[in-house]
Computed example of a mutant assay.
Amino acid sequence: MNTTPTPPLTATDLAVDASGLVKDFGSFRAVDGIDLQVRRGEVFGVLGPNGAGKTTMLSMLATLLPIDGGSARIFGVDVASSPHQVRQLVGVTGQYASVDENLTAFENLYLFGRLLGLPKAKAKSTGSDLLDRFDLTDAADRRISNFSGGMRRRLDLAASLIARPPLTFLDEPTTGLDPRTRGQMWDTIRELVAQGSTILLTTQYLDEADQLADRIAVIDRGRKVAEGTADELKASVGNSTLQLRLEDRDDTTRAAAVVARVLGEHPVLTPESGGLNIALADANRAADVLIALRESAISISTAAVQQPTLDEVFLAITGHHSDNETEEVA
C-alpha cells in the first residue's frame, strides 16, 4: 500500500483561495470568517439554505461586493487590490437572469460580446456558437420575454461564457426549474468541466450538490460548518442511518432517550412527524435499538436502514433542515 502523504496544495493548484472572509450589513454579519479553497478543474459546491451567506460570499469573490475582512485570490490575483484583473478571469450567473427581455436571444449574446470588447464578426460567431451549444438556435430570433424560465437560465449561463473565463460562478443556477430542465443544466455544467473550466456552484438543493460537486462546503448562518466530498460528509454522520417513524409522535422524546441509552448517541428528531434519524457506525446495531424500543412499549409505524443522504448530513451538522431559513441577504 502506498503510504506517501498527499503533497499540500500550492497557489498554482488553486482557482480560489480565500481566508477569513467577512461581510457585514450594519450590525448583521452575513459572512463570518469563511475559508475556501477551490482546485483548478473541479466543481466545488457551496451548500446551504436561503440566508446562509452563499450569495454574499460569491459576490465578494466576484468583486460585486467589497470584502470587509479576510482576503481572497482568484488564480493568484488579489480580489481587493486587482478587481479589474479578476473580472477578466471569472464569469457569473446569478440567481436571476441578467438578459434584456426586449432583445432576442442572439441580440443579447451579441450585445454582451461587444460590451466585452469582441469585434463585430467575433461577437456574432460567438453568439451563434453559444446558442447552438445551449440548444437555443431555434429560439435565436425570439424575444426573451417569450422564453420559459429554463430557456432564460440557459441563455444567462451562455452569456457568462462569452469571454470563455477559466472560472465560472453559478449562483443557484437551477432554482425554479422543472426536473427535465435541471437535468439539462447539469449536463451543461459537466460539459464545461470536461472542457477545462472550474465551477464554483452555490445551491440549496442537496441532490444537486451530490450529483455535481467534487467537493462540498456546508455553509450555515455565515460560517463554514463542514467540508469534504459527498461520501466523506455522509460518512461523518455514520455508515448507515436508521430511520424510524413512531405510531405516537408524543413518544418521540422518550424514544430518543432509549436510543441514547443503547447507542450512547442522541438521534436527530423530527417530532412534528414522530420521526428519528439515527446514525449507526454498525448497521447491526439497528436490531438493538428496535428491541429496546419494543421493551419500552414504544410502537413503530415504519423503520428503514439506509446510507445517509446529504439532507441527513446537513441536519446532523446544523440541527435543522436545509430549507427553513429566511431569504438571502445579498
Results as ranks from 00 to 15, higher is better:
Gln88Ile: 01
Ala105Lys: 07
Leu131Asp: 13
Ala72Ile: 01
Met57Cys: 14
Leu61Tyr: 01
Ala72Cys: 02
Ala18Val: 08
Phe44Arg: 05
Phe134Gly: 07
Ser125Glu: 14
Gly150Val: 06
Gly53His: 09
Leu109Trp: 11
Leu157Gly: 03
Thr93Gln: 15
Ser148Glu: 09
Asp156Tyr: 10
Asp35Arg: 08
Phe28His: 14
Leu65Met: 07
Leu103Trp: 11
Asp24Ala: 11
Pro83Lys: 13
Ile74Met: 09
Val38Gly: 02
Ala97Thr: 15
Ala123Val: 08
Met60Ala: 02
Arg154Lys: 15
Asn108Met: 10
Ala80Trp: 00
Asp24Phe: 05
Glu42His: 04
His84Pro: 00
Leu21Arg: 06
Ile144Lys: 02
Val22Pro: 00
Ala30Lys: 01
Leu61Asp: 03
Met60Phe: 05
Asp132Arg: 14
Asp129Trp: 04
Leu157Asn: 01
Ala18Trp: 09
Gln37Phe: 01
Gly33Tyr: 08
Val79Ala: 07
Leu118Glu: 05
Thr93Cys: 14
Val99Lys: 05
Pro49Glu: 13
Gly41Phe: 02
Asp141Gly: 13
Leu61Gly: 02
Gly94His: 03
Gly69Ser: 07
Gly127His: 12
Ala97Phe: 08
Val16Asn: 03
Leu111Lys: 04
Gly48Cys: 13
Leu115Asn: 13
Leu89His: 05
Glu107Lys: 12
Asp141Phe: 00
Gly26Val: 11
Thr63Tyr: 06
Val77Thr: 15
Phe106Met: 05
Leu131Pro: 07
Leu58Ile: 15
Asp138Cys: 00
Ser19Asn: 11
Val90Trp: 03
Val16Thr: 02
Val31Pro: 05
Asp138Tyr: 06
Ile74Ala: 06
Phe75Glu: 02
Val79Phe: 13
Val86Glu: 09
Arg40Gln: 12
Met151Asp: 09
Arg143Glu: 12
Asp129Ile: 00
Leu155Asp: 06
Gly117Asp: 08
Arg152Asp: 08
Gly48Met: 11
Ile144Ala: 09
Pro83Phe: 09
Phe106Pro: 01
Asp32Ala: 12
Leu64Lys: 03
Asn108Ser: 13
Gly33Ala: 08
Arg114Ala: 10
Arg114Pro: 00
Phe147Cys: 04
Gly91Asp: 12
Gly20Ser: 14
Leu155Met: 06
Pro49Leu: 11
Ala140Asp: 04
Met57Ser: 15
Ile34Pro: 02
Leu116Arg: 15
Asp100Arg: 10
Gly26Leu: 13
Asp24Asn: 15
Ala123Gly: 06
Ser82Gly: 00
Asp78Gly: 06
Leu65Thr: 08
Glu101Ile: 01
Gly33Leu: 09
Gly69Trp: 05
Arg153Glu: 03
Glu101Trp: 01
Thr56His: 06
